[in-house]
Design a protein around this nucleic acid. Structure first.
Lengths: 353, 353
DNA sequence: TTTAGCACTCTCACTCTTTGAGTGCTAACT
DNA sequence: AGTTAGCACTCAAAGAGTGAGAGTGCTAAA
């Protein structure tokens, strides 16, 4: 306790240097290595003192006494939020990403798939994509189509273009009038309702109302209810998860469990606000893989959130490289999905120079 | 080269014993272990000689000189095809499987799901199920539903209950008459056509015919074409694939890649004839996981092939146990799906004693 | 043809040692 | 005060040596 530990300018510089070095080499970094860097010109001994202070503050840790230091998640957090110099993609890189992504004519689904593939290739990490049904999309059409004796297909379509179907068997056949009544009733009650508003209780009420007219209609309502649940459930795809197995800083068993169940991922993605975010498993105990980080951003369609795109990797990952990638890709996807009119980025399309 | 190597009765017995022991213990098995078995009563030295011969013939191999022998895939092949004594399920086992499977009232889809779940649980391997669209199923309905300006949803339904949909954007809106014409034309040309008969050329012709009436209809035909391709593509579900990750004889990377892409599986399943089959990845280089084996059989509905059910595991797997399971389950599924009238098994349903 | 015996091989687990990187502390220096 | 050089210390990783154990191939006898 000799003198309070202060995070002066130099200590921060050293922290940043440690993170950079550790990310680069993967080895714990010692005072000597730091002292050799151009950006720092104090002796190793001084750095040792500062590093000890940074360790006491919880930004660094030692795997064992005679090893160098590695950043803690707290250290990474500070680095990412404050210390890291904002990097800019070169035009070459942008062109490369553009070519991997596709253009205006690429179907939206393929667009995000391509983005995920690009990310796994460029970062050697797993990519995660959610194709979330926008909260604001509404039911635009419900159809019930007879397809056989007592067999019906329910079709549910949203304003954002999602289509779900489901076969449904009834106890009796419906005559034209009954079918008419039902579809009319459903259209009246559901069309224009936002996906977010759909709830169990709502369907319970509808079952009651419909049953009053004809009991055997209730399976249809239940079918629609199930479809709407499907709809609310955001689709989540992880690609390139095999990359995680070759990261030795991740626990293989945990990775395996994650690949199986995607534990905690959707939770982690859910409470994401619109900008780019970096989250560490250590800060969020629902996520299954220890020592991992998630770099994620949302893409928009016509200005509204339409899904997320991100990278899952070990905490030791090249943030300087990955963050611009994710940012650029989500911006570009937003741009392409909106037919080239996303307000947040106006300068992206021109890749002259 | 002193004397030709002959596969006499005893050598086969020894091979079988080696396989059994290896499957049981997972360790390379030596001459001494074999000589101790009741079924074999010659000395270890004799067994050593025979094992050397079996190795020369390619049925066994040594991980290293001072270790015991393990079967090669050729050894397993011989074992499974010729040596293994046909085991019979006990009534207890049958009852257990029956209870896991379901009964006549269980929906078909659930039936195969249950079977897969039962297999993963009992064998600790992954289970694979194909819910193949039966070759003989026919298009029962095609609908085109307008859902927005220039936006249509195509719905394709088969006699076996498969439903596919797809959104389709046209250059112009269709009026009632045009839509009528189109659906009528399609229904006329497709309904009743078996899934197997659908072909590119057929759709090419239809595009031509439809275009003569109205050029901008062709995207719809193309959409239907794509849907029908989807349809022909058998649905393939692998469940319990996480089990494969805990098999240390399998390469984790290969397993993960397989889980993501199911490489080579459908090819491997496709050239399957009706009885139970065991295939090794070593005999089929399209399949992604080395040292694995696939034990698969087809189930039938009303006497016609309706899908496959099987187990994917390491080559070292308890064939004596798994084969009867798969056989019993496929037979039982066939029986249940056919309403208790599949000719190939008449005695299954009675589980008295 | 089978068996017993024996020398040989090779892996695995264990221990001991060395090496080298990196530290913390102290004392001198600015 | 803060910074630096020097030094003793710690610890993991890598290598070398050892002994046990399992299993083999070969030879010679039954």
């Amino acid at each position: 306790m000799k003198g309070r530990v202060i995070v002066d300018e130099r200590k921060l510089k050293i922290l940043a240097a440690v993170v950079d070095e550790y990310v680069r080499t993967g080895e714990p970094v010692g005072s000597k290595a730091i002292s050799k860097l151009d950006s720092i010109n104090v002796s190793a001994a001084t750095i040792r003192n500062d590093m000890a202070a940074l360790e006491q503050l919880g930004y660094l840790e030692q795997p064992h006494t005679s090893a160098g230091r590695i950043p803690t998640f707290k250290g990474y957090r500070l680095y990412i939020d404050e210390l890291m110099d904002a990097p800019v993609l070169t035009d070459d890189e942008k062109l490369r990403l553009d070519s991997m992504l596709g253009d205006k004519d690429t179907p939206e689904e393929l667009l995000v798939q391509n983005a995920a593939a690009a990310l796994t290739e460029l970062t050697h990490c797993a990519a995660v994509v959610t194709n979330s049904v926008p909260r604001f999309s509404v039911i635009s059409k419900v159809e019930v189509i007879p397809t056989g004796k007592r067999l019906y297909v329910i079709l549910l379509i949203t304003s954002s273009g999602n289509i779900k179907n489901k076969a449904c068997r009834l106890e009796f056949d419906l005559n034209h009038e009954q079918l008419e009544f039902f579809t009319h009733y459903i259209e009246e009650n559901l069309s224009g309702v936002s996906v977010d508003e759909l709830s169990e209780e709502m369907f319970d009420k509808m079952v009651a109302a419909v049953s009053a007219y004809m009991v055997s209609l209730s399976p249809l309502v239940k079918g629609i209810c199930e479809l709407s649940e499907d709809l609310r459930h955001q689709e989540l795809t992880v690609s390139g998860s095999e990359k995680l197995l070759s990261c030795d800083e991740l626990d293989k068993m945990e990775v395996v469990r994650f690949i199986e169940h995607k534990n905690g991922l959707s939770e982690m993605l859910e409470d994401t606000f619109s900008g780019l975010q970096v989250k560490f498993s250590s800060e969020n105990d629902t996520f299954a893989i220890g020592n991992s980080s998630l770099i994620v951003s949302k893409y928009r369609k016509d200005g509204k959130e339409a899904g997320s795109l991100g990278v899952i990797g070990p905490m030791r990952v090249d943030y300087k490289k990955i963050i611009p990638y994710v940012e650029y890709l989500t911006d570009k996807i937003s741009y392409l999905m909106s037919g080239g009119e996303d307000d947040t980025i106006t300068e992206v399309p021109d890749t002259d120079t």
